[in-house]
């Protein structure tokens, strides 16, 4: 598909330069905009499909995947939410994601600030330690983590997911916070120090207010990743009433293999909050995601 798109581009695209006609230029623009639309459809079609399926009644199931469902049937949502434990799953996702996000917010900005602005001994080595964590595959960690959590009595608890989840998010978070903290003006910090402020009060009263947009981005990304996590809760939690949405949705798929309306509603409940959060806070999200990348 890549190859066809690349081939399509040169034949269709022509500049407003001296040698080409205006018509060819317009055709080139049209061709390029067609590519944009094509990939927008690729991105949206599956989402559209699941939204339709979630409000389709069983009787309407075989009238074609893209046909508009009629009558619109919300019973799938009611059934999933009330009978399949999705109210529990939703609450657990909320608790686990909020818990991990708070832990990350309490620790990563402090560390990022120390790496960016303070006189930290063995700075390179310590930062390298966090950097290496960026690539660590969660399944490798789990082989030992599982036994450790068992010894700590944290298996089958939400805390047993929250702690390792936050730890796995830390490399990215510390890296991002260092980048954010580097932009805090040195004069601002020095002025506060001259005024006799303690390091902690400099951090809380001067630094944190300046980097608030960065903290917002970090919170959003940490929340998104925690909410999406599957392997960690899959391994740590067995009790059905402690499972988050991701594990719940997968269980549901196994249990009600043919209740497509119910599974579609479940899927929509699982990703709906993230989509809304992303659309509302798009700017903040994008700033966070590109912070570490474009430097």
């Amino acid at each position: 598909m890549n190859a066809t798109a690349m081939l399509a581009a040169p034949s269709a695209s022509r500049p407003a330069g001296r040698h080409r006609s205006l018509g060819a230029y317009a055709a080139g623009r049209l061709g390029r905009h067609l590519i944009l639309v094509l990939f927008a459809l690729y991105a949206l079609a599956p989402v559209y499909l699941v939204l339709l399926a979630s409000v389709r009644s069983e009787a309407d199931l075989f009238s074609g995947p893209l046909s508009l469902p009629w009558p619109i049937d919300l019973s799938n949502y009611a059934r999933t939410w009330n009978e399949s434990g999705f109210a529990h799953y939703f609450l657990n996702s909320l608790i686990i994601s909020t818990g991990s996000t708070v832990l990350v917010l309490l620790t990563a900005p402090l560390a990022g600030y120390a790496f960016a602005k303070l006189d930290l001994p063995r700075k390179e080595l310590l930062f390298g330690l966090f950097l290496a964590g960026l690539v660590v595959p969660a399944p490798s960690v789990i082989v030992a983590l599982y036994g450790n959590l068992q010894k700590l009595g944290l298996l089958d608890t939400r805390l047993g997911v929250i702690l390792p989840q936050a730890a796995l998010l830390l490399p990215f978070s510390v890296f991002m916070m260092r980048t954010v903290m580097q932009d805090v003006p040195k004069e601002l910090i020095e002025a506060a120090v001259v005024d006799g402020a303690s390091p902690l009060s400099v951090y809380f009263r001067v630094v944190l207010p300046v980097v608030r947009p960065g903290l917002m981005s970090l919170a959003l990304i940490a929340f998104l990743f925690s909410w999406q996590e599957y392997l960690l809760p899959l391994v740590v939690i067995q009790a059905d009433d402690l499972k988050p949405l991701t594990v719940g949705a997968a269980t549901l798929q196994g249990r009600y293999g043919v209740d497509y309306g119910g599974i579609a509603a479940a899927g929509t409940i699982a990703f709906g909050p993230l989509v809304v959060l992303f659309l509302v806070m798009q700017r903040s999200f994008v700033r966070g995601l590109t912070a570490g990348a474009v430097k």
Partner: peptide
Amino acid sequence: TSQRTAILFVLPALVLYLAFVGLPI
């Protein structure tokens, strides 16, 4: 003292990270 402050600032993240990622590895 400024070095000690810096260490204390990194410590919470470092402990959490080492306990649940570093040690298991």
